[in-house]
Design a protein around this nucleic acid. Structure first.
Lengths: 114, 114
DNA sequence: GTAACATGTTAGTTTAAACTAAAATGTCAT
DNA sequence: ATGACATTTTAGTTTAAACTAACATGTTAC
């Protein structure tokens, strides 16, 4: 429970949580909706959310789908978060991000051979 | 509201909040119940809690008394915090701390002249 | 098997929070 | 006024979170 609170304190993690609140998404989709950070960063934060018991994942093909779990356990905070995310401005921003995500991948840092 | 969440994410600030949950206390009392940090640190954290709208203070003599405000606004989290703090172990620990506080002041860092 | 994709993990860096030590401010009593 | 007490603030340090870049793992299709 304490972990949960700490996990929700980070704006980045709340952003991730919002993206998968209604509909589960792959790590890649989530990342493409947040072009300002690397994929690695997103993956780490997904790990934090998982440790807090807020999200769980299942493998699907080569992707891994993340979804919110424990919405119930969030209890009090759930309404608070949903109310915030139902705000019109939030939704406009979300739509733009998902459109961006659908369009295609972003260049990740170049890879060198070992 | 976002500030509130961030403020509650810190164990130290939750500890302070717990100390003044039922009964307002001076900054000094709070500090003496937390001998492992300097008074300055406590004062700064009280500032954070105040910025988050979780505590307010009034001057009384040369002391300043802090109390929790907005217990209502905490809404959902309120029950959660109270339940945690009503736990027996927590209360034993709290009693010891307050006894310690009543007994007397701790040596603060030595002061040099400017 | 290899190649391309999707995600995960590691090591090192950057950024921000929390803290200490000291000085500054403010209050009460004399 | 001075001196003792109570708190706040500042500057600098320590500690921890978040991030990047690279490498590693795992899956699918060939």
């Amino acid at each position: 429970m304490l972990l949960m609170l700490a996990a929700l304190a980070s704006p980045r993690r709340r952003e991730i949580l919002r993206l998968i609140w209604r509909q589960p998404r792959s790590a890649g989709e989530i990342h493409r909706a947040m072009p300002d950070v690397t994929f690695g960063a997103v993956s780490l934060q997904l790990g934090v959310l998982a440790d807090a018991g807020l999200v769980e994942s299942r493998a699907e093909g080569r992707s891994r789908i993340y979804r919110v779990c424990n919405k119930r356990a969030l209890g009090p905070l759930r309404q608070w978060l949903e109310r915030m995310w139902d705000d019109q401005l939030w939704n406009l921003k979300l739509a733009a991000e998902l459109e961006e995500a659908r369009r295609g991948p972003k260049p990740q840092p170049i890879k060198k051979r070992k």
